[in-house]
Computed example of a mutant assay.
Amino acid sequence: MASPNLSIAVSLPSADQVNKAAPAAADKDAALRKSAAEFESVFIAEMLSHAGFDKALSENSGFGGEAFSRMLVESYAEEITNNGGFGLADQIYQQLKGRSS
């Protein structure tokens, strides 16, 4: 019994395609890290606000203190995140990276 001659076409990416895909993957990775850090920053700001930190900052601060206390809380939250935060951003990043692979 003669077996049929089957040919399989394999399409390998060219060097140009590989070089173009590498920055796209790096951009995606950077976007995932940024999104995770932004989420942690918002989460920390909400925690600080619910703990009354914004009210404590605006106490005896005069007119406009309440308006700027929220922005100050958000700034503190960003600094906490930029200095390592709670590790939440890393966990979120790992989860998002696992889903995108």
Rank of each mutant, 00 (worst) to 15 (best):
V10K: 01
V10G: 01
V10F: 07
S11F: 12
S11Y: 11
L12Q: 13
L12G: 12
P13C: 05
P13S: 06
S14N: 02
S14W: 06
S14E: 02
A15Y: 00
A15N: 07
D16E: 15
D16L: 10
Q17K: 08
Q17H: 09
Q17S: 08
Q17P: 08
V18M: 10
V18T: 14
V18P: 12
V18W: 10
V18L: 10
N19W: 09
N19Y: 09
N19M: 08
K20D: 08
A21I: 10
P23T: 09
P23F: 07
P23G: 07
A24N: 04
A24E: 05
D27P: 11
K28F: 10
K28R: 10
K28C: 07
A30G: 10
A30F: 07
A31P: 15
A31S: 14
L32H: 15
L32G: 14
R33K: 13
R33F: 07
R33L: 09
A36C: 03
A36R: 04
A37C: 00
A37N: 03
A37T: 04
A37I: 04
E38H: 15
E40D: 02
E40M: 00
E40R: 04
E40T: 04
E40W: 04
S41A: 06
V42A: 15
V42N: 15
F43G: 05
I44W: 06
I44Q: 03
A45G: 03
E46L: 05
M47K: 10
M47F: 08
L48Q: 08
H50M: 07
H50F: 12
A51F: 09
G52V: 02
G52Q: 00
G52T: 04
F53A: 04
F53H: 08
D54E: 10
K55R: 12
K55I: 11
K55L: 08
A56T: 00
A56E: 00
A56M: 01
L57N: 06
L57I: 03
S58E: 01
S58V: 04
S58R: 01
S58I: 00
E59W: 00
E59S: 05
N60E: 03
S61M: 00
S61W: 04
S61V: 05
F63P: 11
F63V: 01
F63N: 07
F63Q: 07
F63H: 03
G64K: 02
G64H: 01
G65E: 04
E66H: 12
A67P: 15
A67D: 13
A67G: 13
F68P: 07
F68C: 06
S69I: 00
R70H: 15
R70P: 15
M71Y: 12
L72W: 04
V73D: 01
V73H: 02
E74Y: 14
S75T: 14
Y76Q: 13
Y76M: 09
A77T: 00
A77N: 02
E78C: 03
E78R: 11
